[in-house]
Computed example of a mutant assay.
Amino acid sequence: MTDSPTGTATVVAPPSHDAAARLKAAHRTFWCTTQAGGCGGVLILYVGTVRVPHFQHLPGASPCVLSSRDAAPAYAHLAYQRELTAWLADQGYDARIEHRFDDAGRADLHVLVGGVAHTLEVQLTDIAVDAWQDRDARYRTHVDHVRWLHGPASTTTARTERVTRDYALRIGRDEVGGVRIGVDTTGVEAAIAWVSLAECRMTAAGVWVPQLEAALRNIAARADAARRPAAEEATSRQLRVPQLAALERRTGAHVEPPPGLRTTADWRRLQPDLPLWGPDHPGWAWMREHPVEQHAAGMYLAMTVTRLYFRGAYSMLANPDLPAEVVRSMVEDMTAAGWLYEDTRRAPEPMWRRGERAPAGY
């Protein structure tokens, strides 16, 4: 530090000897600040001719905890605190660094926005899940909102928050050393949406990041897509219950759903030996026109024609998992491919017959 034993004006020893010499001339005294967990003692900026410039305590100084471990994370943490404080000040907010709570230790930054109390926590290293949950819960008993900003080495802790709250905010440095904030919804570094801190804002609702709203929409869409198959399966089973019950009343025994009433799950259970759809097989080219989530159901429709039956009613070419218009489209595709054709012989309902170009052996 260049301001005092308890200061926050962080400087880094430049690797260049000339730059280090200029820094030493500009600031005659440096301190091991207590704000980073140091001893508050005087530091010397050593600028020799062999070793890389570095800070060291005075000879004979009392032992300092930072002398026995890498001090970089502690000073990086302090630098982030100072830059976040300046960012808040530019927006008219007065933040307190290392704010003390009666029973919750110290918060990195404490700030009031429109009467709403916020804690901003910069977490640069991983901590145990239970430790993070305990600190998070204790902070929330004192403030309205807690926002964690996870550094590059806080991957496990960021994942814990992401699983808990669907996303985590990351903090880091850009190519020129500026602070940047990222929205992390997947844990994949390349997928994190980064922006400069200057593009973000502090609001009564918390830290606003430009990409956050789009990320939350994507999270909601993924959650909806994950719920949809289960909901559709439940709906299809409800629709099939009266039909299967009628069949069981007529036969007096348990009835497995026949083709046309089988869901994709039923097909997998009743025909486990059927091969899976293969996108590289030339015979399945027509399937590529349909969404991937419909491929399994479409495969079983096709297997009804190519493997299981030679002739049947069009009503058996259905799957409760698929909308009726999708089934019609798939039947039209198979007809165009020569896998089936309409059987015009007299029958109580429209019938199909396997075509000559229907593939065999798969």
Rank of each mutant, 00 (worst) to 15 (best):
residue 31 W to I: 06
residue 322 L to A: 04
residue 270 L to Q: 13
residue 143 V to T: 13
residue 361 G to K: 10
residue 236 S to G: 15
residue 132 W to S: 05
residue 238 Q to P: 02
residue 120 L to F: 12
residue 77 H to L: 10
residue 282 P to E: 08
residue 348 P to V: 08
residue 290 H to L: 15
residue 151 G to N: 06
residue 218 N to A: 15
residue 58 L to E: 15
residue 269 R to C: 11
residue 212 L to K: 01
residue 213 E to C: 03
residue 7 G to I: 00
residue 18 D to R: 14
residue 220 A to I: 01
residue 187 G to V: 01
residue 296 A to I: 04
residue 96 R to S: 07
residue 175 E to I: 08
residue 98 E to A: 06
residue 245 A to N: 07
residue 155 T to K: 14
residue 64 C to I: 10
residue 358 A to K: 11
residue 248 E to L: 01
residue 348 P to T: 09
residue 103 D to T: 13
residue 11 V to G: 01
residue 42 V to W: 02
residue 14 P to D: 06
residue 132 W to E: 05
residue 304 T to C: 13
residue 73 P to F: 00
residue 36 A to Y: 03
residue 154 S to T: 02
residue 212 L to H: 03
residue 59 P to A: 13
residue 84 L to D: 02
residue 3 D to L: 00
residue 230 A to N: 06
residue 250 R to D: 06
residue 251 T to W: 11
residue 280 D to G: 11
residue 83 E to Y: 13
residue 66 L to K: 08
residue 112 L to C: 04
residue 162 R to I: 01
residue 356 E to D: 14
residue 312 G to E: 07
residue 318 A to Q: 04
residue 314 Y to S: 03
residue 103 D to E: 13
residue 261 L to D: 03
residue 206 G to E: 10
residue 182 G to R: 08
residue 124 L to Y: 10
residue 283 G to R: 10
residue 136 D to I: 01
residue 54 H to A: 15
residue 53 P to I: 06
residue 264 T to G: 00
residue 142 H to S: 13
residue 100 R to Q: 14
residue 273 D to M: 05
residue 16 S to R: 12
residue 346 R to I: 09
residue 55 F to M: 08
residue 202 M to W: 05
residue 200 C to D: 08
residue 235 T to V: 08
residue 346 R to N: 09
residue 245 A to I: 01
residue 139 Y to W: 10
residue 112 L to T: 12
residue 99 H to S: 09
residue 200 C to H: 05
residue 1 M to T: 11
residue 224 D to W: 07
residue 148 W to M: 00
residue 15 P to D: 15
residue 88 L to A: 14
residue 270 L to Y: 13
residue 136 D to P: 01
residue 353 R to S: 12
